[in-house]
C-alpha cells in the first residue's frame, strides 16, 4: 500500500475536495445516483415518481428494516444469509398464533415476531461467537433449518397463513393507518432505521460493535466483550428480520413456505450499495437506508421501463451490486492513498 504514495506525491496535495467529500460523505454520491435514477426513469415513464413514490417506500420498507438489522452484523465483519428464512419463519409463527386465536393484538404480534427472530439471530450469533463457526456456514445451515420448519405440516399442520386467519385490526394496521401522510408500514421502517442509527452512534455497546469490527483484538484489550457483542449484533439482525416477518404479514396479509426466498441477497445488496464495508468496521445507517430505497426503486421501475424481457431485473440488480462493491473498494483505496500522501508532509 505504501508504494502507492510514492509516485503521485504532488497531485495528491492539490486533491480536489470533491473526492474527499465523496469518500467521506458517501450519502451525497448515493443521493445523486438515486436522483439520476429517478430522473432517468421519469424521462421514459412520465410522472413516474408522482405515481410511484408511495409504492417505492412501501415496497422498500421491509427490505429497509432487514437491512438496518444487517448493518450491525456486517459491521462486526460477519454476515447473515438466513434473514429471509427468519422472516418467513417468524412471520408464520406469529401468524399461526393469531390464526389459532392465541394472539389478537397487533402489538403482541410485533413482539412475537421480534422475539422469535431475535432467538434465531442469537442462536446464529452464539454459534459464530462461541462456536467459532464461519458465519456463512452457520447462517446457511440456519436458512435451511428455519425454512424447513416453516410449514411444519409434519408437526403443527400449518400450510400457509392467509387473509382470513388475521384479525381485521391487524390487516389494516400497517397499510391503511396513516401518520403525516405515510402508512405505519413506512413509519416502522423509519423508526427501526432511526433506532439502529442512534444505537450504533450514541451507545457504548453500539460503539463497541464498530470497535469489534475494525479491530477485534484491540477491542478485546480495551475491555470489550467481543463474543457478547457479536451475539448481540446477530440477535439484532434476527430481531429485525422477525419484525420484517410481521410487517410482511401486515403488508401482504399472507405468508407461506416460499415467502421471501432469496431476498437475503437484496438485503445485503442494500447495505453494500449504501457503502457498508463487508470486511467490518465501516458503514452508516443513512447509506443503508438510501441503498434500500434504491433497490426498491429498481424493483418498481424496471417493469414499467419495458426493456428486454421481464427477467432483466435480476441482471440489473446483480450488475448494480457488483458495481457498487467494486466502486466501494476503489473509492476506499483512493481515500487511503490520499491519506497516506497527506501524511508524507
Amino acid at each position: 500500500m505504501l508504494e502507492n504514495g510514492k509516485t503521485r506525491g504532488r497531485g495528491g496535495r492539490a486533491a480536489p475536495d470533491l473526492l474527499a467529500l465523496l469518500t467521506k460523505r458517501r450519502e451525497i454520491l448515493l443521493l445523486a445516483v438515486l436522483a439520476a435514477l429517478a430522473l432517468g426513469v421519469s424521462l421514459r415513464v412520465p410522472g413516474y415518481l408522482k405515481n410511484n413514490y408511495m409504492n417505492i417506500l412501501k415496497g422498500g420498507a421491509i427490505n429497509m428494516v432487514m437491512a438496518a438489522g444487517m448493518l450491525p452484523v456486517l459491521l462486526i465483519g460477519s454476515i447473515d444469509i438466513s434473514v429471509a428464512s427468519t422472516l418467513a419463519f417468524a412471520g408464520s409463527v406469529a401468524g399461526m398464533l393469531m390464526r389459532d386465536g392465541y394472539v389478537g393484538s397487533t402489538l403482541a404480534m410485533i413482539l412475537i415476531g421480534i422475539g422469535v427472530g431475535a432467538l434465531v439471530g442469537a442462536l446464529n450469533g452464539a454459534l459464530v461467537a462461541w462456536g467459532r463457526v464461519l458465519p456463512i456456514i452457520v447462517t446457511l445451515g440456519m436458512s435451511y433449518v428455519a425454512r424447513a420448519m416453516i410449514p411444519m405440516d409434519w408437526l403443527l399442520g400449518l400450510n400457509k397463513i392467509a387473509r382470513i386467519h388475521l384479525t381485521d385490526s391487524f390487516k389494516v394496521f400497517f397499510i391503511d393507518r396513516y401518520f403525516i401522510g405515510l402508512p405505519y408500514l413506512v413509519w416502522s421502517a423509519v423508526i427501526v432505521t432511526a433506532l439502529t442509527g442512534l444505537f450504533l452512534r450514541y451507545t457504548r455497546t453500539g460503539r463497541s460493535i464498530y470497535a469489534v469490527g475494525s479491530n477485534e483484538s484491540a477491542a478485546l484489550v480495551r475491555g470489550v466483550r467481543a463474543d457478547g457483542v457479536k451475539t448481540l449484533a446477530h440477535a439484532i439482525c434476527g430481531a429485525a428480520a422477525g419484525l420484517a416477518g410481521v410487517l410482511w404479514l401486515g403488508y401482504y396479509n399472507s405468508i407461506e413456505k416460499s415467502t421471501a426466498a432469496g431476498d437475503e441477497m437484496y438485503v445485503i445488496a442494500a447495505c453494500v450499495l449504501g457503502g457498508v464495508a463487508v470486511t467490518g468496521g465501516y458503514g452508516k445507517i443513512t447509506g443503508v437506508a438510501i441503498g434500500a430505497v434504491m433497490i426498491a426503486m429498481i424493483n418498481s421501475a424496471i417493469p414499467q421501463l419495458k426493456i428486454g424481457n421481464a427477467m432483466i431485473t435480476e441482471f440489473v440488480k446483480g450488475l448494480l451490486l457488483l458495481g457498487a462493491i467494486l466502486l466501494n473498494a476503489a473509492l476506499r483505496r483512493l481515500a487511503r492513498r490520499r491519506e497516506l500522501i497527506g501524511r508524507r508532509v
Partner: peptide, 21 residues
C-alpha cells in the same frame, strides 16, 4: 399479459405496474 411468477410480491408489483400504465 404480465407475469407474476406465482410470487406474491412480484404479482403485486406487476399489477401495480399495469394499473399505473
Amino acid at each position: 399479459t404480465v407475469y407474476g411468477d406465482d410470487e406474491y410480491t412480484k404479482s403485486y408489483d406487476e399489477t401495480l405496474g399495469l394499473i399505473n400504465l
